[in-house]
Structure formats: structure tokens, C-alpha cells
Amino acid sequence: MASQIHPSQSREVQLKEDELIVTKTDSTGHITYANRVFMQLAEYPESELLGKPHNLIRHPDMPRGVYRLMWKTLQAGREFFGVVKNYTASGNYYWVLANVTPDYDSKNKLEGYFSVRRPPGRRAVETVIPIYARMCQLESTLNKASAPDASMEWLLAELDKQGHSYESFVLSLLDPHLSTGRSA
């Protein structure tokens, strides 16, 4: 995949306001379903998605610490919000506000994960870009095993300094129109 991508020509494509990207994975993160909006935006046919790991569309600007936090949150049975940058098949990229939740069957057994993505709004993207850059830089100075945890801890500590939990931070980035009333 990486050989087909030319970052210099990479341009941003956007998700429309009234569109949702929905994908599902099994419990190991392999794609079991992708909706048509996703296939159009990411430029993959269904046959190239089903059964593939979701890191297929992973963009190198995304720090590993974010995904570490995502998996930790999901494994604790909670939902995860994240502002995420992804590749399309042709090497373009797009930003989304991803919401990932665990799926349980009627016997309450983990069935897989459900992810719905909305357009994040400029403010959210602008806020996370420098933070992600710092995390990536931090990760590049550490070995592969300890990097994700270290950058995740850095992120949480940094947000804590601003009086934020990770979730309250992401929710604070949402434009008011994303939900109606916001609580204090």
C-alpha cells in the first residue's frame, strides 16, 4: 500500500455535513462491514475491505498513543471519541470525528466494534494537529514497545493540566451545532 502513496500530492477530501461513515469490525479490529459513504470517500470497493485490518487506512500523522488509548477505552467497555486523520486508497486524506463503541450480542458477549464518524469541524482539527505532532515526535524518540504508552500518558497529563479528561477535551472541540444544548 505505502508504495502507492505520494504524500506530496496528497490533498484533503471532506465528509459532507449530512453524511455518516459507518464501519464495523470483529473483536480483533478486522473490518466486517463498511457503508457506502465510506467506500466512496476512501475509494475502496467492498471486496478490498472485508476481512482486512482497520489500520488499512491509517495515516502516519496519527500518533500510536491515540490508538492505544482507543483500545484501552474500548476494552474497558466504554465508548471512544477521537479526531482522526485517515488515508484514502489514492493517498488523499480526510479528517473525521470518530465515535467507536463495543457491540454486544443478546447474550452480552463482545461481538465486535461499531464506529460512526462525523465531520469534525475546523476548530477541532486545528486544535489536535499540534498535539498529534508533539506525540509523534515523542514516539519517534522512543522504542516501538514503549512509545504508544508513553505518548498516551503524555497526552492525558497534558490535558489534565488544562483541567480536562480526554473525553471532556474531545467533546469541548465539537462545534455547538453537533449537538443541541451543551452542559456547563
Binding site: E19, V116, P119
Partner: peptide, 9 residues
């Protein structure tokens, strides 16, 4: 009460 339902999309 901080997690409000998101209606967008």
C-alpha cells in the same frame, strides 16, 4: 450529564 446525544448526520 456531560455526554449529550449527537444528532449530527
Amino acid at each position: 450529564y456531560s455526554r449529550r446525544p449527537l444528532s449530527q448526520g
